[in-house]
């Protein structure tokens, strides 16, 4: 089986590589544009995938309502920026407040969803919590649809075309640059949080062994809440950024984005934070290249094909470790 995998891998890479190099040499600028587009897309996936992977790392739950948290982030930013825009506030203030409110609302939703839908099921079989997550996802979608509108809402980009970015604007727009830069900053901050702060240590301890963590005095419930809040905050940032990039949102955007980010998390190795980032970038870039060189209509199909392939050949993902069962 292993040998077969290797042969298959080499063959596929070889064929793709051969055609790939030919295409790239024919039009390098096009290839580069696709690469940057993929990087942008991957950054957004990464911001969402982090929430999936952190929650999975700690309570082994696929939080299917996570995509909705991202959508709520985008919706909140839209409402805040529209209202403040009508009042004629300074656009820099609007950007900041839109982000602050989006993060705050998404965190509040993430926190509440955990308390209502997952905490009572902490000791229940994992399938129950999963079903509860799907229910929560449907509920939030429909709730936003009824409270707002089923149609698409135009989202005016909060991020202006920076003047200093003018010389590079042909290669990559200010919005794309902002997305990539923000993602990098968020990743660094998150890395510091997990690696060096006390709550980060408590998170890692809880992920490894919940009972032992509580025996040394860690309030596991609080750690789990914090994880949801942090994951929701990064998703909200992703939501606002993508809305700026795409220019329109509706209640349904969280569903597909959530699924894609989930694929990215699985691709990288669910439960692993560097894995989620890597998986997101790989998925974003390969999606972008696929749509650029093959058929753009099959973009989503391509993502799911990738999911199926990983699940068959490397279920633990790129950076995931093989599951060792707990005693």
């Amino acid at each position: 089986m292993r040998l077969f995998n290797i042969i298959l891998g080499v063959a596929v890479t070889g064929i793709l590589g051969f055609f790939g190099i030919k295409e790239v040499l024919a039009d390098p600028a096009y290839f580069f544009a696709l690469l940057l587009g993929g990087l942008t897309r991957g950054s957004i996936y990464a911001l969402i995938a982090l929430g999936y992977t952190m929650v999975y790392g700690i309570i082994e739950l696929i939080n299917f309502a996570h995509g909705e948290i991202y959508m709520i982030g985008a919706m909140t930013a839209l409402i805040v920026s529209t209202v403040l825009g009508l009042w004629g506030w300074n656009s820099a203030v609007i950007v900041i407040l839109a982000f602050v409110f989006a993060i705050f609302y998404s965190c509040a939703y993430g926190f509440t969803v955990e308390k209502i839908a997952y905490k009572p099921l902490r000791t229940a079989p994992r399938l129950s919590a999963l079903i509860s997550a799907i229910g929560m996802s449907l509920f939030l979608q429909n709730y936003v649809m009824l409270a707002q509108t089923p149609g698409f809402l135009p989202f005016e980009s909060l991020i202006p075309d920076f003047e200093f970015w003018e010389p590079f604007a042909d290669i990559i727009t200010s919005v794309e640059m902002t997305i990539i830069a923000t993602t990098v900053i968020v990743m660094i901050l998150l890395g510091i949080l997990i690696k060096f702060t006390r709550i980060g240590k408590a998170m890692r301890a809880t992920a490894q062994d919940q009972i032992m963590a509580s025996l040394v005095g860690i309030n596991v419930n609080r750690v789990i809440s914090t994880t949801f809040v942090v994951g929701s905050a990064t998703a909200a940032i992703g939501g606002v950024l993508i809305a700026c990039h795409v220019g329109q949102i509706n209640f349904y955007i969280g569903f597909l984005a959530g699924l894609k980010a989930f694929i990215a998390a699985v691709l990288g190795g669910i439960g692993s934070i560097p894995g989620a980032v890597l998986g997101s970038l790989v998925l974003g870039i390969s999606e972008s290249l696929f749509t650029g060189y093959f058929w753009s209509e099959y973009e989503d199909v391509f993502a799911f094909v990738i999911l199926v392939i990983i699940l068959i050949f490397r279920p633990s993902g790129i950076l995931g470790r093989n599951e060792t069962s707990k005693v």
């Binding site: 709550i199 240590k201 490894q208 040394v216 860690i218």
Partner: peptide, 24 residues
């Protein structure tokens, strides 16, 4: 039942966790 992915010092510091006051 050690926290295997952490250093020796971190394992002990985790134990110290509940005696520290400051939160986020």
């Amino acid at each position: 039942r050690l926290f295997e992915g952490m250093t020796v010092l971190e394992n002990v510091m985790i134990g110290r966790h509940c005696r520290l006051k400051s939160g986020i």
